[in-house]
Nucleic acid binder design. Sequence first.
DNA 1: CCAAGTCAAGGTGCC
DNA 2: GGCACCTTGACTTGG
Length: 305
Amino acid sequence: MSKKCEELWEEMRKADFRKEGVLNEKNLQLNQYLKSKYSKEYIKQIWINNIDNNLSILKRIKSEGINLFRISSNILPLFDFNLELRGDDDILLRLNDIGKFVLSNKMRVTSHPDQFVVLSSNNNEVIKNSIKILEYHAWVFDKIGLPENNYYCINIHGGTKGNSEILINSIEMLSSNIRNRLTLENDERSYNVLELKKIYDKVNIPICLDSHHHEFNSGGISFEEALEISKKTWGDIKPITHLSNTDPQFINGSFFERRKHSEYVHYIPIIQAEENNKGLIDIELEFKMKNIALYKAVEDFNLKL
DNA sequence: CCAAGTCAAGGTGCC
DNA sequence: GGCACCTTGACTTGG
């Protein structure tokens, strides 16, 4: 590892690193909330802390030459239960500060709502809740001031296997501030790129190609073919691809072991690196060492940011 | 104080 | 049928 990575890693290990607000997002728990353990003011302070924290991370990575950032889904915990805070100027102005910074610095912000978003569920209540979670993400993007397009995407998975029809119906019900930002990512089990392409043909949702997932669920096509197909679904917007690796110690391991993300980048499909370096696609890294993994990949693979 | 357990939420498939 | 996994963990509880 290079000196720069060593230094950053050392910095991350320092106890006072957390206090600098770099990785200091706070969470709230529903059962604690229901037991009235949190005052309104406390929740507001958590929201403010998290917004400021996301902005400080944005400023930091910008100074390090990184322009792409996945904003935390946890930025406003217990969003559903705090309607009145959504009109609070202290919250709204801070969200807008993020937008001003992102847009003036030409950064790209995305989000990845968690696994509970299943628009293709057999259970209608699950779909309703999924839409609620998406509305929350879109609300945050709206208040930040991000335009309604896939450059600032809200990325989810297809959900329940074989339920493309339900997925399409749910997507058609979405409000435009969600739908115009939505992307669908191929996964290891339920929806591969070919299946997502069929959904794209119906409802025009771009495909976010994950090279690691494609290894598990390729539908019989090569990564190069999958990349060609997914790129064409993005129109004028620069496509986003995901990169993660199996940890080398688990190369011959069980499915679960192989699926786990490694700490650092060990390999990148050649075409993915080439197209990234030509500025044709973006790569979002999903590695345990996060931005440190990125700096190391820049050195190891001559990756351009 | 530290380690382990828990957390609102779904779906999957290995074991 | 239980469990881990997905996720840029954080907090609470038990010892």
